[in-house]
Amino acid sequence: MTTPVIAIIGAGPCGLTLARLLECKGIDYAVYERDESENTNRAGGSLDIHPETGQRALQECGLFDAFKKYARYDDTVLSLLDKSGKQHLQIGQGRDAPEIDRKELRQILLDAIPKDKTRWGHTLTGATLGEDGRPVLQFANGVVVSGFKLVVGTDGAWSKVRPLLTQATPQYSGKTYLEARINLDSPLYETLSKSRGAGTTISVGSGTPIITQRQGNGSYRTYFGLPVPADFFKSGGKVGLQDAEATRGLLLSDFYADGWSDDHKALIRHATDFRTWPLYSLSAEDMNWTPVPGATLAGDAAHLAMPNGEGVNLAMTDALNLADKIAEHGVENIDLAVREYEQEMFPRGEETISEGKAMTGIMYGEDPQPFVEIFSAFGAGGDGEEGEH
């Protein structure tokens, strides 16, 4: 295969949005993705897509009509409870920030670029600068590629492209979400669908929040917030996730024993498909690196933040702004385009990192009142995922 002008590392929403925009602008590119095929069943929750960011990017991609076929406008509602089950706030009905499953958003974008533009089964293991000062990419399958005018790391929290630009590394927040599912065949499903209904329910109390969110197929994804070490659920830890019954027992005895309602405890008793989501973040001070010819970052690779409702929207905005800069200056001046993109991206990154830390502090609080004040002031719901986690 010939070396493309631009290499995009990672076929998540950020990388694929960039790919589609470059396709529309007639700029050569290829996407390198670790999954073996587009049918890989990678986990991912539901995302709310905002009008001035994610929706705008989809409009520029010419994909807004395709998006609307899957967009769930009835899932914009957000309810806020305390641990006893008392509702303190419900907002978001009719808000222009519809939900879509991450898998569906990815497929819309994949379908909009030629099949031969995605190089499946390419797990990036390292990126170095060659003798010409431009990136050289090494993949786990033995492929080594160079000669790009630009490599864009859209490869998430643990980006292998990031070390080309900065020594910044994500730091653990001391907080983890333990994700679980209530599927359609669960004995709890009918009761939960009546009590929770559409949208997202956030329950705050005792520093251990519970988030329940309806998915596109009607099932519910639940996140149990835990202030634990990053390796708490790893092999050799207190309990392994492969023992679901022990995991449920741990949650009920150590974290949600006191004061949580029976409805909340039922979520634990019927939880399945556990996986962990430790919350890492870059720092606001990391948003200032010296430009490196031929390389840049976007999305979580650039400005990993803790959940704050903006993850995927900000990533898609990065893709839109970078594509616009490249089209404006041309590939012959691509380093200038990247410098301008990065200078505009840094303030966005600083803001989302700071907001993520503040939001997580409130989410892991003792009671929902600070959340009531925030949501009453802004009237906005939350993004059910990290974005490119």
Rank of each mutant, 00 (worst) to 15 (best):
C14T: 12
L178G: 07
C61D: 07
E388W: 10
G361K: 04
I9N: 02
E332H: 15
D111A: 10
T123P: 06
V204Q: 01
P170C: 08
I182C: 09
G259I: 11
A244G: 03
L165C: 10
A315C: 11
L63Y: 08
F346E: 07
H88W: 07
T125M: 14
G365I: 03
T2L: 10
T200D: 02
E190C: 08
T76I: 05
A337W: 03
G309Y: 08
L81R: 01
A323R: 00
L22V: 10
D96Y: 09
V145L: 12
P347E: 00
I113W: 01
E131K: 13
Q167M: 13
D82T: 03
G156K: 02
V152H: 01
D65N: 14
L164V: 03
M363W: 01
Q93Y: 11
H264D: 08
L279Y: 02
K117G: 09
F64R: 08
D324Y: 06
H329P: 07
A30S: 15
A302W: 00
I8A: 09
G142Y: 07
N308I: 08
E355N: 08
R119Q: 13
L282K: 00
T201K: 05
T40V: 14
G249C: 09
H50V: 02
C14H: 05
V144Y: 05
V372Q: 00
T200Y: 02
E310V: 10
G299R: 01
G133P: 01
G365A: 04
P209K: 01
E385L: 12
A302K: 02
L58F: 05
E38R: 13
G15M: 07
N321R: 12
I210Y: 00
E355G: 01
S37T: 09
V292L: 14
E38C: 08
G197W: 04
Q93E: 14
E38P: 08
F233Q: 03
A230I: 06
D262H: 10
S79P: 04
A301E: 06
K83C: 05
S219L: 03
A257E: 15
A377P: 06
R162V: 00
K175Y: 02
E310N: 14
K103V: 14
Y29F: 15
K68T: 13
K325Q: 15
Q90F: 02
E52G: 10
R196K: 13
I334Y: 11
R106M: 05
W158F: 09
L178T: 02
V204T: 08
A157K: 07
R119H: 12
C61W: 01
G225H: 03
